[in-house]
């Protein structure tokens, strides 16, 4: 059994950001949202940003199955990124990384 859940997401911004979209800033925004919604104890969720394509603004997150719902809630409720109104849209979620090929890779 695979204990992880993989989320394919994309970041949509209202206007172009001044700085580059580094992976660390994306992860920081998600952690900030988790702490705001679930607090110091509830927000302690281990997740990894496996990849983030800056050009297409798409990425893949890996999280333990038990925390997948919490992470998805936090992603949905992010309203701004570096002061710019934005949304994190989850295209697909699966316990198998291969299943995300359809939505993540553009042929």
């Amino acid at each position: 059994m695979n204990d992880y859940c993989y989320l394919d997401f994309s970041l949509k911004l209202k206007k172009e950001p001044r700085e580059e979209l580094a992976q660390i800033y994306i992860k920081g925004a998600i952690i900030k949202s988790l702490v705001a919604i679930f607090g110091k104890i509830g927000g302690q969720t281990d997740f990894e940003l496996l990849t983030f394509d800056e050009a297409r603004r798409k990425g893949i997150l890996r999280v333990a199955v038990d925390f997948a719902i919490k992470l998805r809630i936090a992603l949905t409720l992010i309203a701004e990124f570096q002061g710019i109104p934005s949304i994190f849209q989850v295209h697909n979620s699966s316990s198998q990384l291969n299943s995300l090929i359809d939505t993540f890779i553009e042929f």
Binding site: V35, A36, I37, F38, G39, K40, I41, G42, G43
Partner: peptide, 10 residues
Amino acid sequence: AAHKHYGDFG
């Protein structure tokens, strides 16, 4: 304390 440790949800 509930807000601090469990956030808006708590």
